[in-house]
Nucleic acid binder design. Structure first.
Lengths: 373, 373
DNA sequence: TTGTAGGCGTTATCAA
DNA sequence: TTGATAACGCCTACAA
């Protein structure tokens, strides 16, 4: 994009001004409190142990514990008094002591393939919305689409001892699947629809997504179509479905271009350039994700093509920035936040010892048509 | 963007196909292992207590503990043997027991203003890169630019008892600042340069950023300039600097448009439309963040304006998707991942009981010029 | 350099 | 419905 060079992909920097940010030098103040172990703040230090509450309430510690965890087992009056004291003093249970004794952590680990992905983050947010009000905390990690990293993270789960784990994806490596099962905690996979989820699943069929893309193209009257995407993971599934759909509808797949990275507009741009250079008279392109599609769309327009007449572009993933690009990107996707919420509520049920009657769920894929197709 | 309607902001959906994703129904398998407490997996269950390692190594538990935490205090041979056994058996320390006894958690809480922000996520990733190899785990929360949410989260920190906290922002509310100090743990603020950080800071001056914007416009010969951004938080600081710089350079600020949301292309688009409707003969617009700038840029081009001749646009934040938009967005920003790394290493020092000699650091602001200015 | 004794704060278990 | 007792697994303090 930089300058007018079109070949160079890493956007060259035309002009860089450097400025050492220097507001009037701040005194290295504020150090006072931090660093010490037990900051005692403003006098009214909150109690740190359950016995202190017990003393104030005139009951035994275990009763306070019950009032907090199983309120129904404590007499109305006592319970009210205890909770009032807890509230007033700002007492907070020590989660480490609790986890140690009960074997129940309040941490739920969430692994995203890529923290930069809007949709994955939305799913995690949705999951957090359900779990946090119940006192659980999400610990977020990134697998970076790397099996090695995934394996490392799963190892570290053994140390972390979370109450449950969720992934924005499915675990393919058998060894990792075994390791996860061995944790003996609820496991949530998402974003695909494998036959044999490890434990619970809120997913959708990427193959169906690809098929839907082909059907959409067929319905709009395009016949010469192409695919841009990764050849592994979900990209491969979307391609599989796209091929099936194309065959069924009698479309010609004139090219399948593979890219290495996920979420790269530049790769999409380059791939479209390459596709056009092949002179395949392609009419419509399905990109396995929205950022690739955004790159392709920008490149097409840069070359003076009109969408969708000269070429149609279809993305995947409901990325709202990409979809804003004129003339609007048609895209297939799911409601990621809702997926996250569903995942969260299943996890919650499982953590409570209930048995969800439907531990494997499918969410709806939708195609949103805009100007690009 | 939808259809050809230009007024409606929430992109209308032209056409929605629904498809119940239905791969061949998967057997609700995989349930087997999960749900139970102590999954005993494949026979070779890893030891869960330090005594088991001690027994295998023929030493006392405390020696194993030392070999793990303070290896230099254990004789070479014993240490090697112990670590070999730990490695081989896959023993993992129970973090809860450890935290309970030592008072040292291995959890670092990180709060981002918005999980959807590429730059904030990058900073968190950078911080994690430094902390994770040292055995710390990042727990990520979102404050949603809401003081109320911020207060709630800070409350929950009392329960969580992390080893340190980092924010992609600074804490303004005095009550929250007090509450944080009272935690007695290292606190890291970022993304601004206040005079009185709570504890540690890796930041930059948003005022300088605004000033830099004005200077850039002056240098390029624009005189009639405008601002689009929030009137609170960092947006307000950037505006302050922009005003100062404009005054110093003799520029006319012909308009200051405020938006309510952060990270909204639509708001940027609308604001630019409004600005142009005012007929102020504006030559250059500084948008307080890149997504606003992207919206403004798209709107300008939709109206057939050429950049930068008809209008120049300057963003803030180094968002790489926004900056890809033709003709390339000029933007001011920092290296967020590096900021995160610096923050991480300061936090690390503090957690180790060292006293960083420079607990308040400034990172470099850079202006990257592309086609839009 | 290694070990012994004991407690961190909570909750499971059993008894009243 | 409430309480006494003990134990979760580790590490601090002190001793050898």
């Amino acid at each position: 994009m930089s300058e007018s060079s079109t070949a160079k992909r890493p956007p060259t920097i035309d002009d860089v001004l450097r400025l050492r940010a220097a507001e009037p030098v701040p005194p290295a103040d504020g150090e006072a409190a931090a660093g010490e172990a037990a900051g005692d703040a403003d006098g009214g230090a909150a109690p740190t142990r359950i016995v202190e509450i017990a003393r104030l309430a005139g009951v035994s510690p275990i009763t306070v514990s019950r009032a907090l965890r199983q309120p129904e087992k404590v007499a109305e009056a006592k319970r009210r008094k205890i909770l009032e004291i807890v509230e007033r003093t700002g007492y907070a249970t020590n989660p480490h002591a609790r986890a140690l004794r009960s074997g129940q952590s309040n941490i739920v680990a969430a692994f995203v393939s890529n923290l930069q992905s809007q949709q994955f983050c939305l799913a995690v947010q949705g999951c957090g919305e359900v779990l946090e009000p119940q006192g659980y905390q999400l610990m977020i990690g990134q697998t970076s689409y790397s099996y090695a990293k995934e394996t490392t993270m799963i190892q570290s789960l053994r140390e972390m001892r979370p109450a449950a784990v969720m992934f924005t994806g499915v675990i393919e490596i058998e060894e990792n699947r075994r390791a996860l099962r061995a944790l003996g905690i609820p496991i949530m996979e998402t974003w695909a629809y494998p036959r044999d989820p490890i434990d619970m699943l809120v997913g959708f069929s990427n193959i169906d997504g690809g098929r839907l893309a082909a059907e959409h193209f067929a319905g709009r009257g395009y016949r010469r179509v192409a695919f841009i995407g990764r050849r592994s993971g979900r990209g491969a599934l979307r391609l599989t479905g796209f091929r099936e759909g194309a065959r069924a509808a009698g479309l010609d797949i004139v090219a399948e271009l593979s890219v290495d990275r996920v979420g790269s507009m530049l790769d999409g741009r380059r791939a479209l350039g390459e596709l056009l250079a092949r002179n395949t008279a392609v009419e419509a392109v399905f990109c396995a994700n929205d950022l690739l599609a955004a790159g392709a769309l920008l490149e097409a327009r840069r070359l003076g093509m009109r969408l969708p007449d000269d070429i149609a572009i279809l993305g995947f993933g409901h990325n709202d920035v990409a979809e804003e690009l004129p003339p609007g990107l048609t895209t297939i996707g799911i409601d990621s936040r809702d997926l996250g919420r569903q995942a969260g509520s299943l996890i919650l049920q499982r953590m409570r010892g209930e048995t969800p009657d439907e531990p494997t769920r499918a969410v709806e894929l939708t195609l949103t048509r805009r100007g690009s197709s």
